[in-house]
Design a protein around this nucleic acid. Sequence first.
RNA 1: GGGGCGGUAGCUCAGCCGGUCAGAGCAGAGGACUCAUAAUCCUUGGGUCGUGGGUUCGAGCCCCACCCGCCCUACCA
Length: 615
Amino acid sequence: MTKVLSAVAWPYANGPRHIGHVAGFGVPSDVFSRYMRMAGHDVLMVSGTDEHGTPILIAADEAGVSAQELADRNHRLIAEDLCALGVSYDLYTRTTTPNHYAVVQELFLGVYENGYFVEQTTYGAISPSTGRTLPDRYIEGTCPICGYDGARGDQCDNCGNQLDAHDLINPRSRINGETPEFVETQHFFLDLPALAEALKVWLDEREASGTWRPNVIRFSQNILDEIRPRPMTRDIDWGIPVPLEGWRDNPTKRLYVWFDAVIGYLSASVEWARRTGEPERWRDWWNPPVGGTAGGAAGEGALSYYFMGKDNITFHAQIWPAELLAYAGKGSHGGSPRSLEELNLPTEVVSSEFLTMEGRKFSSSKRVVIYVRDMLARYQVDAFRYFVAAAGPENQDADFTWAEFVRRTNDELVAGWGNLVNRTANLIAKNFGEIPAAAELTEADTALLATVDEGFGVVGELIARHRQKQAITEAMRMVAEVNRYVSSSEPWKLKGEDQRDRLATVLHVAAQAVSDCNTMLSPFLPHSANEVDRVLGGAGDVQPMPRMEEVEDLDGGAGYPIITGDYTAARAWSRQPVVPGTPVSKPTPVFTKLDPSVVEEELARLAGGTAGGAG
RNA sequence: GGGGCGGUAGCUCAGCCGGUCAGAGCAGAGGACUCAUAAUCCUUGGGUCGUGGGUUCGAGCCCCACCCGCCCUACCA
């Protein structure tokens, strides 16, 4: 049994999440985590809501509430959505807890004491009225290159050139129109060049493992060439204070997101351990064994997998590991870790590509979007999960279209898998009312059982290697095999008393094969796996589900909702023999077939949204 | 500007290190069956694998150039 950390990207609290977000990190991380538990590993799956930063402040101002109130509201919404999606977090928490603050500040002090911060004076824009940093993208003005008046501080939308905000002619804040003030300000930069060599050693070792997706490892290696110090603090009042004299009480200096959200993986693990009553237990997933290698292969300690979209590769393949190395004192300045001890680097950065929507990029402002909440309100959660697993942005950008969603659901989920469950249960209910015992097996029977049994190895291996599209395709191939078996065995023709044994055998074998397919599909389709289990007379406990819980803060802060759950009872990843005599009654269909008209309805909804949101 | 991805049957896509690699699913056509949400099963696929060169005994698969899409690169999170 290996300790496996599933570290899932932290959704940003500026609003509800759309299906593109959860297609990239939510579903894939859950499929992987559920499978690893079934395969007998000790999985710790953590994530939470990322609540700090400028966009939250701006959204809060617009909504007329405080940043914390807005974050509270969105944290709850996002958690509800992820819970409804069935993502099996051991802990889904947030970044505004005292626990997170403490872990972040501890990490800061470790990095600071080891000498991996450099103080630099920068020249940046602030808002005169608030004193907050004005990120380049929030400044607009006339492009010095092409003269376009709507250029943003980071880039001109007209000529495409990248700009420096203080080169803009007649710059103004996009937030309130005021003229930004360019001031000198002092900040801490993470000395990434001092960590580059250690990062390279780690990446080379990871590359040699051959497990990372080619584009991810290549990208990670490439960005090492242009490595430079990155600011870890900024002028803002919404974030985690810098734990140093002269900084701690300065209301306008806060830690930057690169030194905040990513540390959540660690702080959430700590919070999880504290909540279990064994506060040091997080170390099983984070500290390398004595004499072992951080982030090493199986047998050398815990494994850690980070799930995110491709826009986050830099943070997880460079900045986060650099912070861990700096804390441990593994860079060119040397040093040693403090109380957290040496921490494991990522075993694998599992980055997905992007999902597009009917051929266009998701855009909340342009209303090219479907929110997780709306999707789950109108359609079966596992129909959506099936689409993501089978046609998601695993290797390359993928397009979500309603026509394809309906087709996948109707032709593959309903007609392929759902119908197999239904016809099998119907035949059993009608002829025996319970799962019959098998008599003598024919060659066809044993062949089918062998084929399906082999599926566990094939499908499992593919999931472990993060090839979920191929994995679910393979599982569905098993489904087709069973459909073929039922059709060619023609149990409905076995009517005579002398054929009773044969009928019982065929239906027993079919029930076993369906049960096996259900087990194999359950990481992808956890909700319906439980329903299918009930259809076959089981208890419906194939896949445990996460739950929302209102908890007290551990350190006296305000209470908040979390997602958690007990997943120890997940079915094992292997054939579980069906039990003859288990009652099976006439089934009700598990999956709902979609009327083709939903395509037009949803497209009309999109078009309407576009018109409404124009501007 | 730099880095990277994709362009394979009407549609969506598989094709690992070059030699049954010209494939799968859907759609279309024909047939079988009736247990099942008209579901299932069987049969049926001549697409110059974006274009032009090159390397090789042999190239979707390697190299070069080019043409189309697209992504990443930000004192965004």
